[in-house]
Amino acid sequence: MDVIVCVKQIPDPETPAAAFKVDEAAMQVLPAQGISPVISPFDAQAVEAALRIKDASGDGTVNIISLGPDSARDAIKHSLAMGADEGYHLKDDAFEGGDAWTIALALSKAIQHLGVPDVLIFGRQAADWDQGTVGSIVAELLDLPSATVLRAVELSGDSITVSRVVADGFENIELSTPCVLTISNEFGDPRYPQLRQIMQAARKQVTELTAADLGLDASEVGSAGSRIQMHALFQPTSDVEVEIIEGDSPEEKAAGLVNALREAKIL
């Protein structure tokens, strides 16, 4: 069974809050010193899901597509080290400043360019902007059935049975292929690459594709094609004030607490 996984490189979500900075004027996140960008954790889980599908079906390929700057190659290489077969890097200045729509458009063109596989997998959302829309937009653009936020994926003959995470439990669905899946963190940890695979991945060629290669005009993608406009980017501040309720007995303290909560209009 052939699978394509779309992955995104993001600033390390483990970056400590103190090292996280934004340039409010340029409306950009500043890279933290000494902390390299990483593959979005949900996307690493998507790669894991794809590798398990390939293993279970016994044949097929797992190919990786990523759209992003030069450094996005590292996210592709990481996926290759985990065991994926080929990597495709959508790299073009024209892609810069895009939104979920333009990225989904470019990805869907790339998928058509490579040939629509049996299964298309995404992380449930990129762990930087957390919009969680690209997978669903691609499904719409390619007119494929989709299931999102999955905790389990199982092959049953030519169809696929999945389990979605929903607010009050799980929802099991059967899909025909080809289809689009997005993987949630409940799926489980991605594998740690073996050193030999890291070294092989380092030597592997990643194919670069531009907007023109995909038959896209510069006006359709990047900031030119964006449907979302950003108006401001800032780090919210949260102030915590601590008030100690004094009192001689627990009863007195409790009464004081109730009064304080009433004053704050919480009770």
Binding site: I35, Y192, L195
Partner: peptide, 23 residues
């Protein structure tokens, strides 16, 4: 275990990943 088989407790994997990414 680590380099050949990549088989290790989750906590070890987390530590190694943090070392790789954040130094």
């Amino acid at each position: 275990l680590v380099m050949e088989e990549a088989r290790m407790p989750d906590t070890v994997q987390g530590t190694l990943e943090t070392l790789e990414r954040q130094g």
